[in-house]
Design a protein around this nucleic acid. Structure first.
Lengths: 110, 110
DNA sequence: CTGTATCCTTGGGGATACTG
DNA sequence: CAGTATCCCCAAGGATACAG
């Protein structure tokens, strides 16, 4: 993404906020993150119920992207019927922690 | 926006992250926030230069929304040629502070 | 149960020109 | 200088059906 144009700045250490925004940019990603934090190791169907309104297609693609970004881990148990569990990676946990002040700011709004 | 479906939760205190995401949801908003934090009291044209790539239309509409959300203050000096200065409100400053851990998380990514 | 495959819609954002 | 006014576009999401 774009970065700031910082006249007279050291140049070489971006603000980093843009990087984070790309990762959590999807419409439901922070909600998924939050859900996985409060209810660890959820299955696909459980997540769908935890995040009301999301469609299967979008949940699936969001999970894929979050997995690719290294914040979500997907574990598939080869059973019938199929069982898949999603959880946060270490980086995902840290991201969630980093999100907490922002959540607090949101809560303080009337 | 949507909120989490939290079975067996106290119900009545949402996670708050969704609220914050709505406020910083625009494509360039965090960058504007950051710019206004590092270079307080900027004029329209200066902001345009600080956030390279943004168009006048989008900068204007983003600023309007951020003003409506109470995180940016717009002061117009009735002069010719016109002069307008944008700055962060108290709430905007607190939002920026709340964004810092997220920025740090982004910076730590390789 | 855990997803694809299709098709369709929308609005956020881009380009450009113009105005007080 | 500080913005509107238009027009346009496309990718992110939604709806629904189907599959292993």
């Amino acid at each position: 993404m774009a970065t700031l144009n910082r006249p007279g700045a050291p140049e070489g250490h971006a603000c980093g906020i843009d990087t984070a925004m790309e990762v959590i940019g999807g419409k439901w990603k922070v909600l998924i993150l939050w859900a996985l934090h409060e209810y660890p190791h959820r299955r696909f169907g459980e997540l769908r119920r935890l995040v009301p309104g999301i469609t299967e297609k979008v949940l699936a693609s969001h999970l894929r992207e979050m997995e690719a970004d290294g914040i979500v881990r997907r574990v598939s148990y080869e059973e019938v019927p199929p069982r898949v569990e999603y959880s946060l990676t270490e980086d995902g946990q840290r991201l969630n922690t980093a999100l907490e002040p922002l959540a607090a700011w949101g809560r303080e709004r009337a």
